[in-house]
């Protein structure tokens, strides 16, 4: 009698302790996430928002990065951007000041936003195009032989390759061997390859989730295999494929390693569309948000003036990724309700 009682007390105790461990683990994650979001949110909003209308720091979003010049003048501490400093010198001829320069810490991050957007769009088009095509082949056309199993294993393994390896691969193949140099197109292929496994796997799953009865029903009405896939399989798999590509977008937008040898410039004055020939567009390097954050956080000496751009960039970056995720979710819900699946 007492043995069972003490036993049940012990079971209860173990259960209680375990639940508390799980609970603490959850709180820990929550605390970390909250800290990161609050830190970036508070410090970043000092850069991105202003206290006077229009309340958004428009130049930060629309100007390229500039060097910040800091100097003392008549007892006042001046912090001027490159352009302002040159103008100031014109207005104060003859004055010699001892200015210290801090790279990238004035101006804004517009070229980085543009570059990241271009990298994301191009690489996602590539990855979705190739990924959906091969998923269609794998799930709709191929017979499950040893070769196909090998392909599947290869895809799974590819998904586990670290992004820096993709970066080096892209550097070796696209930048050096194909001679594309550091360019948008090299970045597209590198990033596209990186998310390809995830997109193939998710697309294949979405395709397989479409009931076989819909394929048979369509074929039985005299539809060809391709008509069946296009009209009666792919539309229903699309929401699932889009959902999975949300993660792909966030990853493509966020990774630094794959682009730092293949597509990203630390600084570039012209915007991507300021090219003389159309083909130059694809073969130019671009600035990119994650790489910019990396550069301003670790490639320049840190001081109180660098924080502005660091947190501002991180804030904008987080916001953009969230925006992308939200758009994809809305898109998915839309296509879902249209299907009334």
């Amino acid at each position: 009698m007492t043995a069972t009682a003490s036993n049940s007390r012990r079971v209860h105790l173990v259960q209680g302790i375990l639940f508390w461990i799980f609970r603490l683990a959850t709180y820990f994650v929550l605390a970390c996430a909250t800290y990161i979001f609050l830190d970036i949110g508070i410090k970043g909003s000092r850069t991105v928002f202003t206290s006077t209308p229009p309340f958004i720091n428009v130049p930060f979003l629309t100007e390229p990065p500039q060097t910040l010049y800091v100097f003392d003048y008549e007892g006042k501490k001046m912090a001027l951007s490159d352009r302002q400093f040159r103008q100031w010198k014109v207005e104060h001829p003859g004055t010699e000041v001892e200015a210290s320069s801090i790279a990238y810490s004035a101006g804004g991050i517009w070229p980085c936003i543009v570059g990241t957007a271009l990298l994301v769009i191009g690489s996602m088009i590539l990855a979705l195009g190739i990924g959906i095509s091969s998923a269609i082949y794998l799930s709709e056309y191929s017979r499950n032989g040893p070769l196909i199993r090998l392909v599947r294993i290869a895809i799974l393994n590819l998904a586990g390759v670290p992004s820096i390896v993709f970066g080096l691969f892209g550097f070796g193949l696209f930048v050096i061997f194909f001679g594309w140099n550091v360019s948008l197109i090299a970045g597209w292929f590198t990033l596209g390859l990186m998310v390809l496994p995830a997109i193939i796997t998710a697309s294949e799953e979405s395709l397989r989730a479409v009931p076989q009865g819909l394929r048979e029903g369509s074929l039985a009405l005299g539809a060809s295999k391709w008509q069946t896939i296009r009209k009666n399989v792919l539309p229903y798999a699309m929401p699932g494929i889009l959902t999975s590509s949300i993660l792909g977008i966030a990853r493509v937008a966020g990774e630094t390693a794959p682009i730092m040898f293949t597509a990203a410039y630390a600084m570039k004055d012209e915007l991507p569309w300021q090219v003389t020939r159309m083909t130059d567009f694809f073969f130019q390097g671009v600035m990119a948000l994650p790489y910019h954050i990396y550069v301003v956080s670790s490639k320049i000496p840190q001081n109180e003036y660098t924080e502005r751009v660091q947190y501002g960039s991180a804030f904008v970056f987080l916001f953009l990724v969230m925006l992308i995720a939200l758009t994809s979710i809305i898109l998915r819900e839309r296509s879902r309700s249209r299907l009334s699946w």
Binding site: G213, L214, G217, A220, S340, W341
Partner: peptide, 9 residues
């Protein structure tokens, strides 16, 4: 007409 009815969505 199939054993399991299969209207399209």
């Amino acid at each position: 007409v199939f054993q399991k009815s299969n209207p399209f969505p």
